[in-house]
Design a binder for these strands. Sequence first.
DNA 1: TATGAATGAGGCTTCATTCAT
DNA 2: CATGAATGAAGCCTCATTCAT
Lengths: 226, 226, 226, 226
Amino acid sequence: MTSEKAENDSGELPDIVDPGMVGVQPQTQRGQRTRAALIAAARHVFERDGYVDSRLVDIAAEAGCAIGSFYTWFDGKDEVLAAVLLEAQHEMLHPGTGRFAQSEDPVEIIRAANRAYLDAYGRNARLNALLDQVAAVDERFRRMRRTRADAFVERNARAIRDLQERGLADRGVDPYLASLALSGMVSRLAQSFHIFGLGGSVEDVVDTATRLWTNALGLTTPDVTP
Amino acid sequence: MTSEKAENDSGELPDIVDPGMVGVQPQTQRGQRTRAALIAAARHVFERDGYVDSRLVDIAAEAGCAIGSFYTWFDGKDEVLAAVLLEAQHEMLHPGTGRFAQSEDPVEIIRAANRAYLDAYGRNARLNALLDQVAAVDERFRRMRRTRADAFVERNARAIRDLQERGLADRGVDPYLASLALSGMVSRLAQSFHIFGLGGSVEDVVDTATRLWTNALGLTTPDVTP
Amino acid sequence: MTSEKAENDSGELPDIVDPGMVGVQPQTQRGQRTRAALIAAARHVFERDGYVDSRLVDIAAEAGCAIGSFYTWFDGKDEVLAAVLLEAQHEMLHPGTGRFAQSEDPVEIIRAANRAYLDAYGRNARLNALLDQVAAVDERFRRMRRTRADAFVERNARAIRDLQERGLADRGVDPYLASLALSGMVSRLAQSFHIFGLGGSVEDVVDTATRLWTNALGLTTPDVTP
Amino acid sequence: MTSEKAENDSGELPDIVDPGMVGVQPQTQRGQRTRAALIAAARHVFERDGYVDSRLVDIAAEAGCAIGSFYTWFDGKDEVLAAVLLEAQHEMLHPGTGRFAQSEDPVEIIRAANRAYLDAYGRNARLNALLDQVAAVDERFRRMRRTRADAFVERNARAIRDLQERGLADRGVDPYLASLALSGMVSRLAQSFHIFGLGGSVEDVVDTATRLWTNALGLTTPDVTP
DNA sequence: TATGAATGAGGCTTCATTCAT
DNA sequence: CATGAATGAAGCCTCATTCAT
């Protein structure tokens, strides 16, 4: 487990953004409003123009306040971005598999997790693309993305190890490496689907991902009869 | 060859960079030298500072020529980058699976392809990271990366379809989607290994990738005996 | 007393800071406290950061009050500075030579005055440096410093004239010019000693200053025997 | 001797400004001209507006070039100032006592030195004031001023020691401290005269300075007859 | 009185691009 | 072809000051 905060018993994933990184906290309602407006405006502008090409002037204008007010709450572009990501991280980290988790069938659990991941990715598609962009440019956000990815990889690695121990999954693969590979596979599919505009239905993608995942682990028997 | 997906008979992958994008061709030896020095310098500076944070001034300095000379050969930063990528694209597109391709065993062919991909990725790791970075910022390079990725996906999709038709691979998955997923999986592993510094040996990664890939397609029988 | 050179009968030196320049006088105890805290904080911040580089925000923070409260009491940075100097001016103007003044020996009187000056300068060294800094930037404080310097020059000029009239000091020099020169000399020594960190003991400096001063006026006989 | 470069045999004072501090050296005549124009313009603007209140825009405008060109040659305001001072330092360090130096009479030598100092100070009065201002704000220039002052103090200290050894000057004072005091005295007079607008003629000031200086060292016999 | 958020003019700085030699 | 100086639009950021609560 490389993430900073240990995962709790309920299977929650740890937070990613260091809250100390996100600027000053307002002490009045008015400040609250302005700061929130700035974060919303920043998300909008970032998603529209990209991080690199965005301008603080536009963010302030979109938030309906002066540029100086921006600096009342944030130290710069990177700090609002951190705040934007902090706001979005709950949604992005907890895809909400809960509703399907009651099933006993590992395959169904995996299918549910994949569908949840794809959905959550879609709801924050532009923000995910943004994080990719900014991670390519700024070390701090690269770490942030890495931490987020690790959270999923670790969780899935545990699940795989569990299946292996129960004699359900192929013991010929290292659970961590396998998780890294398969989690990456799903993440890539999500990217292709939601960002690059891969055609087809979500269900097809979920099905394929699940089939490959379970085949790979030996949970299902591939149909290879000629 | 500028078409995105065409492939010639010899099994070659298509070129990615539009040659019309890479600047002026020198008429003299002196020009030849300057232009080549600029490309080498650009690659060096890009890999060191990243595309966004690099400065033409540094590239010219590294190449040992004046900034004016840069504009003799290229129209701007993006054009040198295109030239840099053009120079590297052969290496990046043709990992050189040839030596193992003679084997009849599909598993060995896949293993060889995975190893070749990982090696090639490693030899151009920083350039790959660079392409990721720049793709996040510039549409044209996004397309370029996409084209490159597509080349692999298409090739692998054909291979999968072939295996399915020969009754060797699981018919339950769409060959294109499966290729997209599995190619992405290997690409992610390469990224983790060469860029993010995942521990372990290349062989472990190759083994895991191959095992998962072949399991997923039903080419191998996973070991799940309790 | 705002006149520049007037001196009252008791031999006191005139006040330097125009009381009309130092802001609003509080009507309540609470106001009293806040205002005093601001002055103390301002002195602290000014001495730490210098006048030019200091920020009102820091002064307010140091005083433990909001920036708005600052403007309740002062109109700006210059006004607090004036208040700071007003608080310190008594100490700076009246070095307290009294204890030695009873001596009849002119040399001893001069020595006592020099020692008193040096001591007083030291007790307010940082504030003196601050006044120098601010005088270089703001005409009003330049005048203030000038007035303060003049007070000493005038007093010493009278003393020199007195010694000349009593046949004890060299009549070949203009008393005012001589006072300007010798007062400046001692002031510079104080600066060197307390601000620039000249080595040596205070006594050495006092001795040298006194010897040179009295030699220069012919009060003592220099030792020049080979 | 605390200055960086040792004084040469001919009695020259060492340079003060570190030439490595003054920006880029032009490689063409055109660059030469622009850079020189910027230095001249900077001196003009600094002397008119003071260092703190001066704006780079004004300097560039005065030099007749774009603001970007300023940054071609200097890294910022401080660097031009260093260049300005470097240009002026020869004049300020070598007042040119030569014409009177042939006299054997120590008193006449001192008088000549004082007159030369006062003249040189006057020719660069505004620059001296500027240096004072900036020294109050920036450590680097404080050191520069200090070095310059030290050069004079050291030179005069040597002269005093020499006179003492020849049995001409009061042995009761430490030569370095005495030089510090007397050099400071003359410097203060120059300041009063040229910057603060002290009335009277230069000759009067020179006479007083010389009389006090020589009295102080015992080179002359003060007139104290009642 | 005290608070703390809002304001915005104005300075600084960067660097891709142009151009005269 | 090469050179290197000139250009200036465009962002960033600061902080004294104002103002509503």
